[in-house]
Simulated scan of single mutants.
Amino acid sequence: MEWQGTKALPTCRKTQAVREFMRVESEVLFSSRGLGWSGLLMEQHRFRAGEWPASTLSGPILCLWNNLETLRCDHPDANGHFVPKLVHPGTLSFYTAGDLPPAHPRSQIDGLICAFDSDFLLGVPQEIMSESNTRSVADGVISQDKRCFMDAPVQHILERLSEAARIRTLGSCYANHLISLLNARLLHILGMDANRIWLRNKIDVMTLRRLTDRVDATPNLDLDLDTLAVERGCSKRHLLRSFRASTGRSPHQYILDLRIEKARRLMLKPALSLIDIAFECGFASQAHFTYAFRQRQGATPSDYRRRL
C-alpha cells in the first residue's frame, strides 16, 4: 500500500483513536476493519523516520512495536529535552485517553496498533486512567516507564490476531475469542502492576522538578538524606518511603539516574569526550561513570554511543 495520511481513515470512535495516536503519515499493511470483530480495531502501520508532534487521545490504545531490530526513538525527559531511547522488538505500549508527548523516531518503525471499545475501560483501575501519558519511553531505565512493558502472552495473542487480520479467512468468532483473552490478560497486568508500573505520586511534581533542576545545574552536588528531609519538612524515613512510592527508587538512585540521563543527552554531542561527559555529569572518574552506566544500560558508554 502507499504511504497515506490520517485523512483517509473513517471517523468511527476506535479509528479516531488510532488516527490520534499515529499523528503522521504511515503505510497501512493490514487492518481488521470490515471483519466483524467485537470491541477491537487492529491495524499494522509502518512509520518513516521523522518528528511526531504532540497529540491528544480520545480512547485507549495498545501498540506492539514489532520492528525486527532495536531502534532509536527520542523522547522528552523530565525537563523536556529529547534524549535517545531504544525501542526493543516486542515492546508493548498502553495509553489511556489524554495528552501524548512528541517523539522523534530515527528510522523506520513498525507498530501494531489496537484501539478498544469504551467498555474495556470499565475494568481499568482508576489510578491508571487518571495518570498522564507523558514521559513515555521504551527502555524504562531512567523514568521508570509507566506505559511500556513486555509480556509474552499478550504478544502471542496479538500475533494470532494479526494472522487473522492478514489472511481474512478466519471467522469473527475465532477473533472475538482471542480479543476476550487479550482483554482479560491486559486487565490482569494493569491491576497486578498498578503499584509497580503506574506509580502513585506521593511526592509532588514540583519537588521532583526542583531536584532535577538542581542536579542538572550542579551535577556533583552532594544531596544527603538529612538535607532533603529538612527541605521537605519530613523525617528521613518518610522521605524514603514517599520517594520510593513516587519513583520506585531511593533518592540516591533517583539522582544517579538523573546523571545518567544527562550523560545520554550529552552523548549526542560528538565534540564531547566520554571523560568530559563523566565530569560534566558529576562522576568522580570515568571508571565510576562506566560502572554506573553499565549497571543501568547494560552496555558501556562507548558501546552505547556507537549505537546512537
Rank of each mutant, 00 (worst) to 15 (best):
T134I: 03
R259V: 10
D226G: 00
A287H: 12
Y254N: 03
I167C: 09
L161D: 04
D226L: 05
R33C: 08
N201A: 06
W65F: 14
G36A: 04
V124P: 02
V18S: 07
D119G: 03
D139Y: 08
S242V: 01
T15E: 15
A17H: 02
L221N: 02
G98Q: 02
A271Y: 14
W37T: 07
P270F: 04
I179K: 09
A17T: 08
L62D: 01
I260S: 01
L158Y: 07
E159W: 13
A184H: 08
L178Q: 09
T247F: 01
Q295F: 04
I142D: 15
T11L: 14
G282S: 04
Q144N: 14
E261P: 02
Q126P: 02
Q297T: 13
A164W: 09
G140K: 01
K14Q: 13
R23G: 11
E20H: 04
H188L: 12
A165L: 02
M150D: 14
M42K: 02
I277A: 04
L223P: 05
K269Q: 15
R46T: 03
L211T: 03
F94C: 05
I167R: 13
N66T: 00
S246L: 05
H81M: 06
R19Y: 02
S32G: 08
D193N: 11
D276T: 13
T169H: 15
C63F: 01
F293Q: 10
H75W: 12
T70R: 14
L272E: 11
P105I: 10
S162Q: 13
H88V: 12
L272P: 00
K85G: 12
F21E: 07
I179Y: 09
R72I: 09
A175C: 10
